[in-house]
Design a protein around this nucleic acid. Structure first.
Lengths: 369, 369
DNA sequence: CTGTTAGCGCCTTCAG
DNA sequence: CTGAAGGCGCTAACAG
């Protein structure tokens, strides 16, 4: 019952190992009857080509690597499972596998990359959470290892990537808050070394400055992207005597953490304090009130990231190696006019999406019928 | 700049390939000076043994497999990222990698297992979301592939596993609701074919029956473990004229979905409707109000699952191959007395854990001082 | 159309 | 203490 190998198929069918191999690979110089018998035997014995042998010959692993970035031990952004699902589904469609690793406790992250690439375990890598002058990128370029980035990098102008224009995204959310009448708008942002922090901070700053609002550094808190850190940052922000009436968080998890802080402080989201996030994880939609955020089609992006990487690995031409998608803000009940405004505070109805990035025409037509 | 191989080290140091190999593996029959020179060269050239070559010789992949169970495309239970982090951290400590796959769209799940095992890509597997008479288990037993299960199986009495006694867990939560005065307690459960559904349903049924409450089948809804399905199940349940005053969901994600439904219906969680979950994901703690649930130390369990699998793979003795952990209920503000009771409805304070599984003595002492 | 042969990188006898 | 040789499973060039 041990797993079948070419040898076994050869013995069983009476042909040589190489004929068996050729038949299975679909070479044309094999007698159709022979091929049929061999395929039959392969099915019967549940044959799957032994990967290591194949790799040794071909140099291909049919595997791509993805290292889960971890900030501390209880890292659990659902974002990554969706990303992984997207990558995984497309990978399995194209008959690839995914090697997943973690930076593994205290070990240096780059070391994990060196090991995986150096030992020839993958044909390419998908990189996320890029940092300023990211050493992983430098290493992959040096070793000519194919890779694709979710997000952007600053040390490789030609690196293939997919990203959302998050500067524009955060800017739009901030502008919406300003439009609603907010002036004291806080920002819960991410560590400075992360590339995307730059873009998101910039969006916030631009929105304020263009509307004549001065940047108040005491309204800016730096979290580590976890829900708990969002809660703590928000608690600090709300402690101030002249507390903010709105909080812009750079990811949904921290925004949801801010929810806790607001409610814990006896305040109401969307009324006393408006909150926005970024990512569009499903928890955002189902939160109470539903969270205003930027929808990121992360499952789809995962698929497309893999497609790009696949093409690079197989030396196919990549039509668009650098994709910057427009942000898709979704305004929900987590934002409203600041307290002290006459008008009804809830501008957006619970559970009702008002997507800007997407044109929704169908519903209107339906109503007419 | 191509990756260094034994050949390169041999050329560089002037020794033969086999001497280099032995030096690197720490064999004692190598001249210390020789070894030093070889190790030096290895460091310099950034040598990592080529995995495929090693595997071909040794039969070991130093890799374990984990297939993400997907119910539909937007599956995103944060539970799995934490599990994966635990597995991954322990794996990297013991110098193993993880091969992750998805069932990949419509493809049969078992096919993915056959391919991964058949092609010799892994030394063992971690299995989750087991079904009744799970065919994966049958297959792994047949092929003598090492595996370990998160949860239990019904078709392999000796299969190594780690599980929480979820029957007892759900029972404790249900009993607590009964104790608070609830009589119409609904259940949002999972598909029947999942093994754990049995245990959790049983806990619910036992709690009711032992307290003289009849099972009302109209109070039982079956979801698919996603937040959205929890919301829909709860909506159905709350539509009834004689609506339930409490909802027991078999996982946190569905419980949080129920939150939406309750609030959408203009009701208040913990007051009009009590809700409990299961898993203890971080979103449960940060929800509003915080969710009563069973804490599952999933990161730790991931680590221990890998340890067990590691031992099985390496033919080490496993002291406790079957581990059933006691449930650890955490009562939070999502539950209270049913409406119409005189006493104040909020028995549990927001954000204050009242863990039963854990003895908390320190706080009391602190108060005395 | 089919079989023989060589070699990918590694480890491990076996000789010396 | 060191080197030569064989073979894990697979593919591809070559011979017939």
């Amino acid at each position: 019952m041990a797993t079948a190998r070419l040898k076994d198929l050869a013995r069983k069918t009476g042909f040589s190992i190489s004929t068996v191999s050729r038949a299975l690979l679909g070479y044309r110089d094999v007698n159709p009857k022979t091929r049929e018998r061999i395929l039959e035997a392969a099915r019967e014995l549940n044959y799957y080509p032994f990967q290591a042998g194949k790799q040794l010959r071909s140099g291909k692993t049919h595997t791509v690597g993805f290292l889960i970035p971890t900030y501390g031990k209880r890292f659990s952004d659902p974002f990554f499972i969706e990303l992984l699902s997207g990558i995984g589904d497309m990978a399995s469609t194209l008959d690839y596998d995914i090697l997943v690793g973690t930076s593994g406790g205290g070990g240096k992250e780059i070391e994990a990359y060196r090991r995986i690439v150096g030992s020839g375990r993958v044909d390419g890598l998908i990189i996320t959470r890029t940092k300023i002058n990211d050493e992983r990128i430098t290493y992959l370029l040096e070793t000519k290892t194919p890779f694709v980035v979710l997000g952007r990098v600053n040390n490789a102008p030609n690196a293939p990537f997919i990203d959302i224009d998050s500067k524009a995204g955060i800017k739009q959310l901030t502008e919406k808050l300003i439009e609603l009448g907010h002036r004291r708008i806080a920002l819960i942002t991410s560590p400075n070394e992360l590339i995307f922090t730059r873009y998101r901070n910039e969006g916030y700053r631009e929105a304020l400055l263009e509307n004549g609002i001065e940047i108040d550094e005491t309204l800016i808190a730096i979290g580590n992207l976890t829900q708990e850190s969002g809660r703590q940052c928000a608690l600090e922000l709300l402690k101030q005597k002249n507390r903010p009436t709105a909080i812009v968080a750079v990811n949904d998890l921290m925004a949801l953490g801010a929810y806790s802080a607001v409610q814990q402080s006896g305040l109401e989201i969307g009324k006393d304090v408006s909150v926005t996030g970024y990512d569009g994880i499903s928890m955002a939609e189902n939160a109470h009130p539903p969270l205003t955020t930027i929808e990121v089609p992360i499952y789809e992006i995962g698929k497309r990231l893999f497609e790009i990487l696949f093409k690079i690995i197989n030396h196919q031409k990549v039509e668009h190696p650098q994709i910057l998608l427009p942000p898709k803000p979704v305004f929900r009940a987590s934002i409203g006019k600041p307290p002290g405004t006459n008008n009804p505070s809830h501008t957006f109805k619970t559970g009702n999406d008002l997507s800007v990035g997407e044109k929704k025409i169908k519903p209107k037509l339906r109503r007419i019928l």
